[in-house]
């Protein structure tokens, strides 16, 4: 399991970028797996999630898409569903399989004591995962 908020830096990063009406953030990483982890880390940071000390909860997810972009959006919206449907946040993530049309992961986390932001959904707006000299990057627009 990768600890999203460990003191040992997760390869890559994220930063919030300007958007008139909604929220957007830029993510980058050396590979697709870390890009998806950075996407989750950025999402929880923007949501202002504060984890409870309750015992951990585990969920397994299997997502399908038509390409990496569709998996990335499905991934973020899956995490958002757990936030709204079960008040769960996941700070331990193991992506066990990632191919252009399928993602499998084990999620470890706990109930959240506070969310400071409502995010309706992750959108496909102008989404493209593009290669860089150091790996891959993308910018995600969130509807708030």
């Amino acid at each position: 399991m990768t600890d999203l908020f460990s003191s040992v830096a997760l390869p890559g990063g994220f930063e919030e970028v300007e958007h008139t009406a909604d929220w957007a953030y830029h993510i980058w990483a050396p590979d697709y797996v870390h890009l998806f982890l950075q996407a989750a880390r950025g999402l929880y940071a923007l949501l202002g999630a504060e984890w409870s000390p309750e015992p951990g909860t585990t969920r397994r997810v299997k997502l399908q898409g038509v390409d990496y972009e569709s998996l990335l959006i499905a991934w973020l919206n899956e995490l958002l569903f757990y936030r709204y449907g079960e008040n769960l946040g996941f700070n331990q993530i193991d992506i066990t399989h990632l191919a252009p049309t399928c993602l499998e992961a084990t999620l470890g986390g706990s109930p959240i004591t506070q969310w400071s932001k409502d995010i309706k959904a992750a959108t496909y707006h102008n989404l493209a995962i593009t290669p860089t000299d150091d790996g891959v990057e993308a910018t995600i627009v969130l509807d708030v």
């Binding site: 959006i73 919206n77 569903f81 309706k120 959904a121 959108t123 496909y124 627009v141």
Partner: peptide, 28 residues
């Protein structure tokens, strides 16, 4: 919000099925 999320995701396949060209995938 969830209904829109679900159908934006499902329609990613539908546009391939119906041969629809999109300038932005959010316009699925």
């Amino acid at each position: 919000h969830q209904i829109c999320t679900d159908y934006v995701q499902q329609f990613q396949l539908a546009v391939l099925q119906y041969g629809i060209h999109l300038p932005d995938r959010e316009l699925v």
